[in-house]
Design a protein around this nucleic acid. Structure first.
Length: 437
DNA sequence: TCTGGGGTCCTAGGACCC
DNA sequence: TCTGGGGTCCTAGGACCC
């Protein structure tokens, strides 16, 4: 019988990532309650510890908490994804020093898994502290580290490290005995387990499964009968059996969506054409970046669901393209056609978006049945798309495009970003100046 | 007046085929 | 009067995550 080696996985996750990223260049904001807002300054997507303490929930609409913000001097930032993306890259590269490349999995913008199974001599708690200190020193980000024998346990450990100060920011569950592990799991709600959302938690409660320890004690097979295979895997993972695959390289996207709420309502097809073209250009750019072509294109419009007094109409439609493509001009023509087809006058539209689906690798493209070999025109088109992507990469999205998508966002639909911080790390003209005495 | 924008996976049910 | 059953494919919708 093969000896099963216990895996040693770590999850490193930044604390209030967007807020912490804003604070790196504003050390005066240490201890000041800070939130970061979603696109359009709509709702709260990141809260500093001070704000969490005030009971502000994730996703709270900003306009609803303006009074509270005034009362407690909460500072709000518009989201600055250029900044967060760059800080994320630095954070990941610091952690890359601790494992071989294939043993780091970048899971999201602010967290990654590291596999220390093949470094059995390392003390994970000590290593966790080294990683914390180095990330803090080299990037300015505060992070917590959780270790466990499965991804779900490592995620859980990270949660423990964040919520219980006595761990000092590093919780290694692999160092605990079975009894000690169950004791820790018993202190947390089942909702704190990765993969258990609001709905599942409510159902579990009705079976008397309240804590993470309760869930671990469940019979995985019975869970599958009453719930789904997804929750079955979660239970197994809590029991130390790995079910969630290791994904060292991010898999190619299966669908690409580009959408935004408008700064204000739009009504006519003429008005809507502009954001649709803009989103189509963004989506096609992402498509080309991953080297895919799309076989299906979808478009959707939305009215404001938070205003029940308004007539509601949120149509969507998708078509199979005659030939899969990554050509912005072709896609844009279809997208505007679809938009016109689903649009009805008399509604107050607040959001539009496009979706690319049925994605395949570009090199295995099989033209439409009636296509011959690529023509000169096709090749010129390809080069044109290349120029488009390079220009937009260099001078900013929306510099160059097809039709009016090339015009930088303006007029009624541009999003509001009233409290945007500078791109400290990615724009020469917004670099931070350091004055020496 | 103002309420984000991405993604993934799974399941159930209908269409269709033999 | 009697009205199958199994398989596959597709889609819509739900649940979850960050």
């Amino acid at each position: 019988m093969a000896l099963l080696v216990k895996r040693r996985l770590a999850l490193v996750d930044a604390n209030s990532f967007y807020c912490s990223a804003e604070r790196i260049f504003r050390p005066d904001l240490e201890g000041v309650p800070v939130v970061v807002l979603s696109n359009n300054d709509g709702c709260v997507v990141a809260r500093s510890a001070e704000v969490k303490k005030l009971g502000v929930a994730m996703g709270m609409p900003w306009f609803q908490m303006k009074d509270l913000a005034r009362q407690h001097n909460i500072l709000a930032f518009s989201s600055n994804y250029t900044l967060y993306g760059d800080i994320s890259r630095r954070f990941m590269s610091v952690l890359a020093q601790f494992v071989p490349p294939e043993e780091q999995e970048i899971y999201s913008i602010d967290e990654c898994f590291l596999d220390f199974t093949h470094q059995p001599h390392l003390d994970l708690t000590a290593t966790g502290h080294v990683m914390r200190d180095r990330v803090k020193r080299w990037t300015g980000l505060p992070v917590c580290v959780g270790c466990g024998s499965t991804k779900t346990l490592a995620k859980f450990a990270n949660n423990v490290a964040k919520k219980q100060a006595q761990w000092g920011g590093v919780c290694d569950l692999t160092a605990l005995s079975e009894t000690e592990l169950v004791a820790v799991l018993g202190q947390f709600d089942v909702r704190d387990v990765w993969g258990v959302g609001r709905k599942i938690a409510m159902q579990l409660m009705s079976y008397g499964v309240r804590t993470a320890a309760d869930l671990r004690a469940c019979d995985a097979k019975r869970i599958r009968e009453r719930f789904t295979v997804v929750l079955e895997r979660t239970v197994s993972e809590l029991q130390g059996v790995s079910c969630v695959a290791w994904e060292n390289e991010p898999p190619a996207k299966q669908q690409i969506i580009a959408s935004r709420s408008f700064g204000g309502p739009l009504y006519t097809t003429e008005q809507l054409a502009e954001p649709v073209r803009f989103h189509m250009a963004r989506a096609a750019e992402k498509l080309r970046l991953q080297g895919s072509i799309a076989g299906t294109l979808g478009v959707f419009l939305e009215t404001n669901r938070f205003r029940p007094q308004d007539p509601q109409y949120s149509p969507s439609r998708a078509i199979h393209l005659p030939a899969a493509t990554d050509d912005t001009a072709v896609l844009t023509t279809w997208a505007t056609t679809l938009m016109r087809a689903i649009h009805k006058p008399g509604f107050r539209y607040v959001k539009a978006g496009v979706m690319l689906m049925d994605l395949r690798e570009r090199c295995v493209v099989q033209g439409s049945l009636f296509d011959a070999a690529p023509t000169d025109r096709d090749l010129r088109r390809e080069r044109l798309m290349g120029v488009l992507d390079r220009a937009n990469g260099k001078w900013g999205r929306g510099t160059m495009g097809v039709g009016s998508a090339g015009v930088k966002q303006q007029r009624g639909w541009a999003m509001s970003r009233a409290n945007l911080s500078p791109c400290y790390t990615t724009r020469w003209d917004e670099l931070r100046e350091v004055l020496a005495d």
